[in-house]
Structure formats: structure tokens, C-alpha cells
Design a protein around this nucleic acid. Structure first.
Lengths: 358, 358
DNA sequence: CTGAAAGCGCTTACAG
DNA sequence: CTGAAAGCGCTTACAG
């Protein structure tokens, strides 16, 4: 490995001068700079990040991206957007895939293992606990979150309650009253902000419409395809059946569509389905969904990270919460509530706003 | 940041002893070790990776994973498998998402930017060019490839020609003769090994069956959903139409299914479709496909990387090519060739092995 | 514009 | 079992 000393010897100047020349610092003669550069290229010189880091106060030019599941479309897409922006600015990305592993989470968010390893952190899709926030803040780690909001740190996200409201109101307008929810109900371990907010939006919207809540209509879907499928199976076995389902993610919606198909139900004649994301496959399933800009969330978050790491202008706002817009995309999986058919009248018929029979 | 010096002062021993105690080296008294450890915990000590790396010969405990597109299921899944194995062994993962960017590729594979940054490299899904191989080898970089095979480095992959053969023979057995191919034909820029091998397998299998090649039946699908869709559109506009399509990836197959549906064709009555991967959504589409173990390829590759970095046993095999098994999964998108219907006889009817009309 | 020297936080022979 | 010292490859005041 050729080092700065080799270049110094080769060009007959000191290592200090080589260092300055290489980094484009002023106060180096053009001639010297040229010779140093030339030698660097010729000898294939690459600075040692370790030495650079050590000598210049621990900068690593690396940021950690922490995600729950790389394999899920949302996370992979956020990574893609963030990585691109960071790479353009010369930062490397260290990937931490928590994969639902509590031990991994503790190591990454609850120890200082990363303190000297990265300059900043991008946490995607999980809401850090107060202790984690406290811990990381104490270490002076710059952090940006995507999909969750913590007061202390900048965040990029969509309004998940509004997302749910948008979807549910769409169903209400179509006359549905018996609307089920498939999301994540037991997230004790991962403390995800998103599932909670969407469930809340669902419940609040129904309540505002004067519809009584029915716990039977809230199902665990785990935010996965399989989870959605089995939730769909359980849901469609209910009697009376719901006429519509709001799924907190497109992947779960795909699962519900599958369950419906297996049971021989027509969509949307017998069952309306709405998802969230506008997943790359949503159009394929002709799925009505609430679109959120995912790549853009990754990009924006990366920019926030860069800003956080940049020499702070004195009056710069430190914390900053960005909320990106979402949009209802109506496709073929939602339609008017079925005409009062065989379904026997079930629980909670009161308060239906329109005159439509449930 | 507390350093080794703080611990030395705190415990009244030298930094050398602290260093030994911390790393569990022998020749440290139990008592000393205990006191050092205790102080380390109490003061929240974390070693500086930079200092450690510099002092101990440039080890980084980091490996680079280079992929083409993080957002694609195959790549994300390989990453997931590899990351898990590497993390268990204390290695960090630096992610490089090439994203079809030639400049990025050059920087990662064609410069020594990574030389001192990672201990090894895992290259997923792209066939390094001879120059790239030469370049990285020259730097002494340990490399393992997934999905491509280079003589010099260990690799983990499936037999892509066999994969194609399996799929096409399945179609042949169902009586199909006019079988199209959707894959990647123009990969000059990315030099992917996989698309080429699958195309070769397709052509060879047809030739072995005595079927004349029809260039019109080979379409560019770009290995994406959209690519598959538009390839499907073009394909189904042909006359006579093919009765079956072999898609080199499930994602393209999904696209073809979509095109078929839009055109009002029944699958498999009017058109049979086979994919490759057994993508997590394949079952949803009831897609017949050739399954490959993806997570496992990531895991295995990571193990090879670890082996490569481990102190080499003298007679250890340096290079080692693993080929994982694949399996035809027959679902509902393939069926017998349609009875000779309206289709006008087209080109190349000779050589049909069975008496079945094309 | 350039150089000598100290220092970043560790590890590692070498002595003892 | 323990310590003093050199060294890893850079950067950074400080002089000149």
C-alpha cells in the first residue's frame, strides 16, 4: 500500500505538503501540487480512512441506515433513495437490518457501538423509545428518522392518521359501514409508530362517522403478505362479513385479495379493499390505495442528515419535521357497497349517515 | 469520548495492560482484568475503530456488499441473508447500490477506493469484467460473487442454464412449440451473467427439441415488472401468437400476466407462463416458476467471505464454486397447449417432435 | 509556499 | 503478569 511517505519521497517534499496538495488546500504551489497529484495517480495512492479519521477528529464519512426489514419494498426503497444522495456527497452507508431481532436493536440503538463508527444515523420505520432517544442524544449522535417522529430529531414522514382517514373516508363515501382493518396490533416489541397511527386514524374516522367500533373487525396482519392473507381468511369467515377492508399496507392488501379470491368473492362487488403505499405491484392488482412518496422520503431524510453533519450555522434550526403529501389512487378494488343481500343484519346498525343499509 | 488512557489512569495500570485486558488476551491477572472491565463499563468505553484499524494492520471488520438494485426482491433478500451471517460474526456491512450507474460501478469495482475501507467484498448479481477481476485481485481484495461465476473467486449461484432448461422443458412437455422468451438481451453495460445464461438455456433447449429459433419471440424485459408488461404487450400482438412464455424472472412474468389479462387472454388456456425465482408474490399470482434459494445464497456467500478472511490454513482451497439446487414449482399459469385453433400456421413448423400442431 | 514535530487512540514486540 | 516505547498513516498548528 503506498502511503503519503512514498509520495513525499517520490516528489521530494514533506509529508505535510503532500497532505495539503492532495486535499486541495491553499498555500501549495501549482507546480508542487501537480507533481504530487501525478505521483499519487501513478503509484495508485489511496488515503487510509483509518489514519484520516484518527488524525482529523474521528470523522468517518459514513452514516448508518437502520431498517427493520431490508426485504420489504418500503424499506428497500427508502434505502435506495438515501444511499444515492449520501453517495453523491461522498458518504458511505453502513446497513443495519434489525430483522425483528431485539438483541440487534439493543446493540445498534442501545449501545455506543456505533458512536465512533458513523457520523450520523438514519432510522427508518421504527419509533425509537425514549430511552433510545436519550441514549443516542447523550452521545451527540446526529439522527434523522423516517416514518416516525421524535421531538428531538428531524423526521421525514407522511401523516399516517390522515392516510388512514383518506382510505376509510373513501370507503364511507362508497356507502360502506362495516369496514374492517388489517394492520399491526401487537407491536410491543418493535414499537412502530406507523401501525399505531394508522389504526388510530381508522378508529377515529369511523367514530366521526358515528359508526360503532367492532373489535372483531380489527385484525393482525403483521405488515406482510402472509399476514394479510391469513387476516383475510379470518375476516371473510365472519358473519356478517365486512363489505370493505382497509389494509395498512399494500402488501397486506394483496394478501386479503388473495383470500377473497380463494373464497370465490368478487372484488369489488362483494368486497372492497384499500391499501397504503402504492407499492410497485399495486397497479398490477388494480388496487385502490393511498400513495406515499417513498423514494422521496429516503432522499429527503438523507439531505437532513447531511445538513445535521454540516458545520452548523449559528441560527440554524436543529430539529425539523417534514411531512410529505399523500394521495388517494382509486383503482378497481373499491366500489359501492353491495345492495342489501343475503347478509343477515349484524351488530351496530345505528348512526349510518346515509340511508344505505349496511 | 473516554479512551484507553482514561481507563489506564482509572485503574492505575498501563495502556498496554488495559488493551490486553480488554481484548481478553492471556497474561493478565484476573484481578487486573476485572478492574479494567469494570472501569470500561462504568465509563462507557468504546474502542475507536480508526485507532484499532491503524494500529493493527488495517483490519476494518467491515465487508462491502455490492448490488445492482437494492429495491429488487432478489437483491434485498440476498443482502438480508448475508448481513445476518456477517453481523453474527461481528462484521459490519457497507452497502453499495450500483443502481445501473456506470460511474458508480467504476468507482466501486474499478478504483481502490475500497481497498482500505473493507476487508472483503460480496458482489451480487453482476459478472465482473476481466479488468475488474484483475484490478481487485491485484489489490489482494478477497471477493465472493453471487449469481455469477468468475474463476478466480468463490461463487454461490444456481445453474442458470439448467433453470431455463427446466422451465422450457416443462412447457415442451405440455406440448408447446411456439415458446417465447422474456429476459434481458441488451446488457452490454452491466454485463450480467444471469440473463445471458438463461437466454442460452432457452435457446439450447429449443434447439435440442428440434425447434427452429424465432428471433421475434425473444423480447427485452429488463428484469422489471414494467419491462415484463411491455414485453408481454408486444408478444401478444404477434401473429401467430406464442402459446407459452418463459420469463427469466418472476417479476417479468407478473408483467406478462398483466398484459395477458388486459388483452383478455385466459391463462393458461390461451397462454402459459413460467417464471424464475419463486418470488414472495409468485404464489399470489399462482405462477408456475423455477424456485431458487435466495436467502440461502446470501448466507452461504457470507460464510465464504468469512472463510476467505480467516487465517488461511495452508492447504485450504482458495476458490470454490457452489451451485445450489433449483426446483420446478408447478402452479396454475401453465397448462397444455391450446387445441389447434384459429391461429394461422406461421413460420418454422418443421421438426416438432410430437405430432402436436404448433 | 514548505517543513519539523506533535498528536490522534490504539497495538505490539521487547524487556523485565 | 506488566510497562515503556515505537509505530500505524495521516493532519495540524507553529515556524520560517
Amino acid at each position: 500500500m503506498t502511503s503519503i511517505h512514498d509520495l513525499a519521497r517520490e516528489t521530494g517534499v514533506s509529508t505535510a505538503t503532500v497532505s495539503r496538495a492532495l486535499r486541495g488546500l491553499p498555500r501549495v504551489s501549482e507546480d508542487t501540487r501537480r507533481r504530487v497529484m501525478e505521483a499519487a495517480v501513478r503509484l495508485g495512492y489511496v488515503p487510509s480512512p483509518h489514519a484520516v479519521g484518527l488524525a482529523s477528529g474521528g470523522q468517518t464519512r459514513t452514516v448508518a441506515i437502520v431498517v427493520l426489514f431490508v426485504t420489504r419494498w418500503f424499506f428497500a426503497t427508502v434505502i435506495s433513495g438515501a444511499e444515492q444522495v449520501l453517495r453523491e456527497r461522498g458518504y458511505d452507508v453502513l446497513l443495519y437490518n434489525l430483522d425483528d431481532d431485539q438483541e440487534a436493536r439493543r446493540r445498534v440503538l442501545g449501545t455506543h457501538l456505533l458512536t465512533k463508527r458513523v457520523d450520523a444515523m438514519l432510522i427508518v420505520g421504527l419509533g425509537p423509545t425514549p430511552q433510545e432517544v436519550h441514549w443516542l442524544s447523550n452521545q451527540g449522535m446526529p439522527v434523522v428518522t423516517v416514518g416516525a417522529r421524535v421531538a428531538q430529531w428531524p423526521s421525514v414522514r407522511v401523516d399516517d392518521e390522515l392516510v388512514a382517514r383518506t382510505a376509510v373516508e373513501h370507503l364511507l363515501e362508497l356507502g360502506h359501514r362495516r369496514i374492517a382493518y388489517v394492520g399491526m396490533l401487537n407491536d410491543a416489541s418493535l414499537s412502530l409508530a406507523t401501525p399505531r397511527a394508522r389504526a388510530r386514524g381508522y378508529r377515529d374516522t369511523l367514530r366521526d362517522a358515528g359508526i360503532e367500533q367492532d373489535p372483531d373487525l380489527e385484525l393482525e396482519g403483521g405488515f406482510t403478505l402472509e399476514g394479510g392473507t391469513s387476516a383475510g381468511d379470518r375476516l371473510l369467515a365472519l358473519s356478517p362479513r365486512p363489505t370493505a377492508v382497509f389494509c395498512a399496507s399494500d402488501e397486506m392488501a394483496f394478501g386479503v385479495l388473495r383470500a377473497a379470491r380463494r373464497k370465490g368473492l368478487r372484488v369489488p362487488e362483494d368486497l372492497s379493499v384499500v391499501g397504503v403505499d402504492d407499492h410497485e405491484m399495486a397497479a398490477l392488482f388494480d388496487l385502490t390505495t393511498v400513495r406515499q412518496p417513498v423514494l422521496e422520503q429516503g432522499r429527503l431524510a438523507a439531505r437532513h442528515v447531511l445538513r445535521l453533519m454540516a458545520p452548523q450555522e449559528s441560527d440554524e434550526v436543529v430539529s425539523d419535521h417534514v411531512e410529505l403529501g399523500t394521495e388517494l389512487v382509486v383503482r378497481g378494488t373499491t366500489g359501492p357497497v353491495p345492495a342489501p343481500a343475503s347478509a343477515s343484519p349484524g351488530a351496530g346498525g345505528e348512526g349510518a349517515k346515509a340511508g344505505v343499509e349496511r
